[in-house]
Structure formats: C-alpha cells, structure tokens
C-alpha cells in the first residue's frame, strides 16, 4: 500500500501526535521546540490542526506507525512500544525521554500451581497481552513455548479468570499490577516516546525534517534524561 499525498513543493509538513497518555508531553516538547501548538491545545473535534507551516494530525497511538510508514504523515511522536509492536519501517530519529514505561512479564502472586510446574507438565504456557509481537519475540528469545492470547484491554484480568498463566503488559509504576495481586517477574523492554520519520520524507524533505528533529532534540530537557 502507498499513500497519495499532495506533491506540491510548498505543502506543510505533517506530524502525527498521539492521543492519550503521551499527548500532553508531546504538545509540551513541541512547544519548547518553538512550534505553534495553539491549535493542539484546544483541538475541539478537529483531527488535523495547523500550526505555522506544520499540520498536526491527532491520531490513535497504535495507528501512528502506520501513518508514518505509509507516508500519510511525514513524521510523528510515538511510543517505542507501539513502534516495536507494529514492526513497520520508520526512521527513529530522537529519543524524547518522556512517557517512560516498561514492558514486563507478570503472574499472579498466589497460584495453586507454579508456572514451572505447568510448563513441565503441559509444555506450554498461556500468555495474555495487548502486544502479541513483543510477547512472541520475548519468549522466542528465551526459548519458551507459549500460546499468546491477544486481548484489547484490562490484561490484568486474564490470569484472574484463568484465561492465561502470565501476562505481558506495560507498567509505569506497577501499581495496577499490585492491586490485582500480580507480581513482575521480568522486564521485557523499556519504552520512551520517540520522534520518528517516514524514510522517503527524510529524503524528499531533508532540510525541513532535519530542522524539526534538531529542534526537538534540543528541546528534550536534560533533567528528564535517564
């Protein structure tokens, strides 16, 4: 698939901004980088807002990699987690350091049978997750046989109702997991927000894209560095 956009030379650059948890920080870093984000602060129901020579596209976070990889937008802010899960070809330009979270494997604190026991006798464990690719890749690297069950939300419930033995999910503080009597057993991946670009836009709009990336890199506050 390939996206058809205006080929006019003077078109605005399109940058996707993810709704939800990363939205406020995204707007803040864009503002610090000197972009006109007035429209983003009060978008109303508009999904595309203009700020100077940039068009901001407000997108569902998991759709952002698709917009970028197929060229619907030139660039975007996206969590490393959705980038890995999408498996699409985008250029990862800048680590913006906000939106930090980790992917973890978790299991119930009190199970009648240990996971090792289940694995020994059944040869496979069931894992519930919103992120099947990340989960599959992790267990493949560990050489463990798993059956991945993809769910769309409230992953913590899966072990409680017997749907899965373990879960792979994101956590920032680990509180939700603890409240559902789940404990973290290992870390899969650390994620932060990234500035990403479409490979062709990097070539055809090289100067403007580099300018945006440099300004964003300069706007990442050192205090937020890990």
């Amino acid at each position: 698939m390939i996206v058809r956009t205006s080929s006019a030379k003077e078109r605005p650059l399109r940058i996707a901004v993810p709704k939800g948890a990363l939205f406020a920080d995204s707007v803040r870093v864009l503002e610090r980088a000197g972009f006109d984000v007035e429209g983003l602060a009060e978008p109303g129901r508009q999904l595309i807002v203009r700020g100077g020579d940039i068009e901001f596209v407000i997108a569902k976070p998991t759709d952002v990699p698709i917009y970028v990889a197929y060229g619907g937008v030139d660039a975007a802010i996206a969590g490393k987690d959705v980038l890995v899960e999408s498996g699409l070809d985008v250029i990862e330009m800048v680590d913006l350091h906000f939106g930090a979270c980790r992917f973890v494997v978790a299991e119930p604190m009190d199970t009648p049978r240990s996971i090792e026991d289940i694995y020994r006798h059944l040869g496979v464990i069931r894992v519930a997750t919103k992120y099947p690719r990340i989960a599959e890749r992790h267990f493949a690297e560990r050489g463990m046989q798993v059956e991945v069950v993809k769910l769309d939300g409230n992953i913590e419930i899966a072990p409680l109702i017997g749907l899965a033995d373990q879960i792979v999910d994101i956590t920032a503080t680990g509180r939700t997991l603890a409240e559902n009597r789940l404990r973290v057993i290992e870390e899969v991946l650390r994620s932060t927000a990234r500035f990403v670009a479409n490979p062709v836009s990097m070539a055809t709009e090289a100067d403007r894209m580099k300018d945006v990336a440099d300004r964003l890199a300069a706007a990442v506050p050192l205090s937020e560095e890990e």
Binding site: I2, V3, R4, T5, S6, S7, A8, K9, A69, Y70, G71, G72, N198, P199, V200, S201, A203, T204
Partner: peptide
Amino acid sequence: LEVYARGLGLP
C-alpha cells in the same frame, strides 16, 4: 540507490 517521487511515502 533509492528512487523517490514527491508525495509518495515509499520509494
């Protein structure tokens, strides 16, 4: 080498 056309998101 890669060939690009304006307005197309893929080479």
